[in-house]
């Protein structure tokens, strides 16, 4: 795997002339060309604003957004709002992860129970988290609690579905081996069910965390007085477009980082032939 991933140009001819080295360097630059798309677009945007093609009030240039970001960071607001959002997701997602994994695995192995409970899940699933915001405010007021609820709700479904599918698809052979040796439910869950379903459960958790991150912003737009969602909403009321976009950029970057973290976690935990 790893050797075949090596760029062909770096394998042969390590000891070569300077001319060859420069072509190698050029090849290295060329291989990274897909990474240039985002900076190129940002430059184009900057240029378009400076040359007056677009309205700077509606589309503040990247330089202005960076400046806003710097202001927010040095004033400390960015950090406290970021911390508020991340903490909310931490709480809501943890609750969802525990409930959704256990329930998904249980229903996946207990079809008789699944027949009764799955219709409820399928009926609630199409209700967007946005539609839950009013009732969440009525139930929990403003602040952390409605956000926890909405995040948990949003994260629940991808985690549950992946856990359920994985448990249902558990090869019958493994169940028979466990039964043959007289394994207790505890041993079966620890050494068979969890490891067998782990790769897909982790995928579900990664998707669920992403969903949770979108939900926290939605919740904060309406039902909170802190967090990144609240930050961009406040910037909107004061018509500071560059702050709105700065907040959005942070939301995007944090979501991206969370996803990368989960991918790395999946790779580190899942061993064996299935890790590829």
């Amino acid at each position: 795997m790893s050797t075949s991933d090596l760029p062909a140009s770096s394998v042969p001819g390590v000891v070569t002339s300077a001319g060859k080295l420069s072509t190698l360097a050029a090849a290295a630059v060329w291989r990274g060309h897909h990474l240039a798309v985002v900076p190129a677009l940002l430059l184009l945007w900057e240029a378009a604003v400076r040359w007056g093609f677009v309205n700077a009030n509606l589309f503040p240039p990247p330089s202005a957004i960076l400046e806003a970001l710097h202001d927010l960071a040095s004033a400390g607001m960015l950090w406290s709002d970021l911390a508020a959002s991340v903490t909310r997701v931490g709480v809501g997602f943890s609750v969802a992860a525990v409930i959704a994994v256990s329930l998904g695995l249980a229903l996946g192995r207990l079809p008789a129970l699944a027949r009764y409970l799955l219709p409820i899940v399928e009926l609630v699933r199409p209700i967007s988290v946005i539609a839950w915001i009013p009732i969440a405010i009525l139930w929990f007021g403003l602040g952390d609690r409605p956000a926890w609820f909405l995040i948990a709700l949003g994260a629940f479904f991808p985690v549950f579905t992946n856990a359920y599918d994985a448990a249902r698809a558990l090869p019958d052979t493994y169940v028979r081996v466990a039964r043959c040796f007289g394994a207790s439910s505890g041993l079966f869950i620890r050494q068979v069910l969890i490891p067998a379903t782990l790769p897909q459960v982790l995928t579900g958790l990664r998707i669920g965390l992403g969903t949770g991150w979108t939900c926290v912003i939605a919740a904060e737009l309406i039902s909170s007085t802190s967090g990144l969602g609240y930050l961009i909403q406040m910037a909107r009321t004061t018509i500071e477009t560059e702050k709105v976009l700065a907040g959005m950029a942070v939301i995007g970057l944090v979501g991206f980082a969370m996803n990368r973290l989960m991918v790395a976690l999946e790779r580190a935990i899942v061993r064996g032939p299935r890790s590829r």
């Binding site: 039964r179 068979v192 032939p273």
Partner: peptide
């Protein structure tokens, strides 16, 4: 099934994660 009778399964059926 009972532990007095164990089985060697077709295609071994080893647990790949253990």
């Amino acid at each position: 099934p009972g532990p007095d009778r164990t089985m060697m399964f077709q295609d071994y059926a080893l647990f790949p994660w253990l």
